[in-house]
């Protein structure tokens, strides 16, 4: 038996019936298995719901008042005909929560969709707004998703299996590179849109932030098949990266909100003792140079030395130019 209490189970069944009854009237002769799949329900659940619908109807309870379902046909052939339920021809209208959940989800789709899809999404959003909760200002979503033209070209390359050359402004190394990439998909994680693809240059799976792709160039080559993408994500990789401990002074503590932090402890003097996973030493060097006296590395002399070496090279360049 279901662990759901009978009371809640009855309300849930009514909720399902208020979906199934209009659906079945819009799709006469629908197959039980298809209906179950469409609503993500077990087929025997749909069958039980139908036997309840069969007993419901307008007051009076006479045969002409009741919803009509040919249950024999359902059992023998798996085909459903439900009639005499004109009063339940339409589903219940959307609640504010449902309408706004859908509208905001579609705004997120708009943020990463190809620019050519924007007119379709806008007209869809207008139609949903008409049935939604009215005069609310929908959330202002801003996904770092790069230029629409970049997305258009990447989506076209993906659908036509084209190899492309990216002009990529990598942050960790602070350099622009030009990898050859077989693009596979676009995705958004934590409000930032990425391209996932196979780097022909690096011979491995890579993710690229769309807002750092400065250009997508055609190569005229066909993308190769590289099997399935690895299941682990960049964030998983980061979680396994060796951590570095930093003492972060108050002026630099914004970093704990911008970068994934493995742990932080507030010290009595107002400093933060931060444990930061570091997947790329070049990124840590960049961060230490950026923050300067705002942080101190704890117990990793090689890390400190690496940043110092980069600082010395920069000072040498200033000195050479007579700019010191």
């Amino acid at each position: 038996m279901s662990p759901v209490p009978a009371k809640a189970a009855a309300a849930e069944q009514v909720g399902r019936l208020l979906l199934l009854i209009p659906y079945l009237q819009a799709h006469p002769g629908a197959r039980l298995a298809d209906v179950a799949r469409e609503f993500g329900l077990p087929p025997d659940q749909v069958r039980r719901d139908l036997s309840v619908a069969f007993l419901c109807g307008l007051p009076g309870g006479l045969p002409g008042d009741l919803i009509d379902v040919d249950l024999d046909l359902v059992d023998d052939e798996g085909v459903i005909y439900l009639t005499n339920a004109a009063v339940l021809a339409r589903p219940v209208t959307l609640t504010p929560d449902e309408a706004m959940g859908l509208i905001v989800a579609l705004q997120a789709v708009r943020e990463v969709a190809a620019g050519s899809l924007h007119p379709v999404i806008d007209s869809l959003l207008a139609k949903l707004a008409a049935v939604g909760p009215g005069a609310l200002e929908t959330p202002a979503l801003s996904v770092a998703a790069g230029a629409p033209a970049t997305r258009d070209r990447l989506l076209r390359a993906i659908s036509q299996a084209e190899r492309v050359e990216l002009v990529y402004d990598g942050l960790a190394r602070g350099k622009t590179s030009r990898p050859l990439v077989d693009p596979v998909r676009l995705f958004v994680a934590d409000g930032v849109a990425y391209l996932s693809g196979w780097s022909v240059t690096r011979q491995g799976w890579r993710t690229y932030r769309l807002d750092r792709i400065a250009d997508v160039r055609a190569t005229g080559e066909v993308a190769a098949a590289h099997g399935p993408e690895p299941a682990h994500t960049w964030l998983d990789t980061l979680a396994q990266a060796p951590p570095v401990r930093l003492i972060v002074h108050p002026g630099a503590q914004w970093i704990t909100e911008y970068y994934p932090v493995a742990g932080q402890v507030r010290l009595p003097n107002g400093d933060l003792d931060v444990t930061l996973p570091v997947a790329d030493p070049a990124w840590l060097r960049w961060l230490l140079l950026r923050l300067g006296p705002g942080v101190a590395v704890v117990g990793a002399p090689a890390v400190t030395a690496d940043a110092a070496h980069a600082a010395q090279a920069a000072l040498a360049a200033y000195a050479y130019a007579g700019l010191e």
């Binding site: 449902e98 996904v143 989506l155």
Partner: peptide, 28 residues
């Protein structure tokens, strides 16, 4: 909530085709 909204649109007879645009997969 979004799942319920989509089920209601299906119940209204709107054919929500399988997503051909798998290339875009936003999450919030």
């Amino acid at each position: 909530a979004t799942g319920r909204a989509i089920a209601k649109l299906k119940a209204a007879g709107i054919p929500l085709a399988a997503d051909r645009l798998v290339a875009v997969a936003p999450t919030l």
